[in-house]
């Protein structure tokens, strides 16, 4: 379980009922739970949980946090987010952190910011 804070801005907060900050408890990645099913002999040492990554968070947010217009956040087929959303990990562009593969730690703040074009 990884506890991260998710920020929504630039209008994306409207997809989550107007909330700008949502605390998310990210379940362990599937790869972590799938390990250790071997039988017999001494029980295997508990597997080191695979760290959750931002890609997991996006899928989780789309499925569990977004309440409407899910494709305005990310399409189901897409690994990332829709064009025009800036993703920040602790206020740093996620391109500097490995995008969807960036590992998450407890307390991280991941921001999803829709770029604005009005004036």
């Amino acid at each position: 379980m990884t506890r991260v804070t998710v920020r929504f801005a630039g209008g994306l907060e409207l997809l989550v009922g107007g909330r700008k900050r949502v605390d998310v408890h990210l379940p362990p990645a599937p790869s972590a739970t799938a390990v250790g099913v071997g039988g017999g002999g001494a029980p295997p040492p508990p597997p080191a949980p695979a760290p959750a990554v931002v890609g997991d968070l996006i899928a989780h947010v789309r499925a569990e946090v977004i309440t409407e217009r899910h494709d305005a956040f990310a399409t189901a087929a897409d690994a990332g987010v829709r064009p025009g959303i800036l993703v920040l990990i602790n206020d740093v562009d996620w391109e500097l952190e490995g995008t969807t593969a960036a590992a998450l730690a407890d307390g991280d703040v991941v921001s999803f910011i829709s770029t604005l074009h009005g004036g």
Binding site: R82, P83, T115, L116, H117, G118
Partner: peptide, 10 residues
């Protein structure tokens, strides 16, 4: 890539 037009507020 530009955002989908439906996601652009003015």
């Amino acid at each position: 890539v530009p955002p989908p037009p439906s996601c652009v507020g003015s």
